[in-house]
Amino acid sequence: MEIHPQLWITGGSLVAIFALAGLAWWLKLGGKPVLSEDADVRAAAGEVEDGFEAQRISIARDGAAALASDKAGRIMVIKRHGNQFAGRTLTSAAKVREEVDGLVVDCGETQFGSVRLSLEDPAYWADAINRL
């Protein structure tokens, strides 16, 4: 019995795919990063904007987003974007909507989108954002 060359190619491709997936798993590549403590938020905020030193921080319950404010009263929203974090310093164009268990923050930039945060203190942040 002769095996068609296309089956050899398909089988070899599947073996290569599984080998690469195993290598990625072994190297712990990918995954979803989480903001679990204030230091994580400070580091992410510092990467977004050089010199942003977060003073007050609230991390979403799922660790996928956070809000941070600095001494100057600027507020930054940070969210997970792929396997890293992205953030924006909010301006007067920002809009906030309170929900039952958190906030939805729209920084006013369509490419960044809205961020839903389930927080312990949503009223404080809603007032702070509305004052911008």
Rank of each mutant, 00 (worst) to 15 (best):
D106Q: 05
V105M: 08
G22K: 01
K28Q: 15
I78K: 11
G63S: 04
V34A: 14
D70H: 02
A16D: 04
F112Y: 14
S69K: 03
A45S: 11
R56M: 06
I57F: 02
G51R: 03
G102A: 06
T110F: 02
H4V: 09
D121F: 02
H4A: 15
S58I: 00
M1H: 06
D40W: 03
I3N: 08
E120I: 08
R61Q: 08
A93E: 15
L119E: 11
S13A: 15
A54I: 00
R80D: 12
L7Y: 12
Q55K: 13
V41H: 10
L23E: 09
F112A: 09
F85L: 12
A72F: 00
A43M: 08
W8M: 07
G11E: 04
R88D: 02
E120V: 11
D70F: 01
A65H: 08
D38Y: 02
W8T: 06
S92W: 01
L67H: 06
R131T: 13
Y124T: 12
L90W: 09
R131H: 13
F52N: 06
G63V: 00
L117N: 05
K32W: 04
S92N: 09
G82W: 13
A16G: 09
K32Q: 13
W8D: 08
G63N: 01
L103W: 04
G113Q: 11
I57G: 06
K28P: 01
A66K: 03
V41S: 10
D40V: 05
R80H: 09
D127V: 03
I3Y: 10
L119P: 05
I9K: 05
V34T: 15
Y124L: 10
A64H: 04
E99T: 15
I57P: 01
D106K: 04
K71G: 00
W25M: 10
E47R: 13
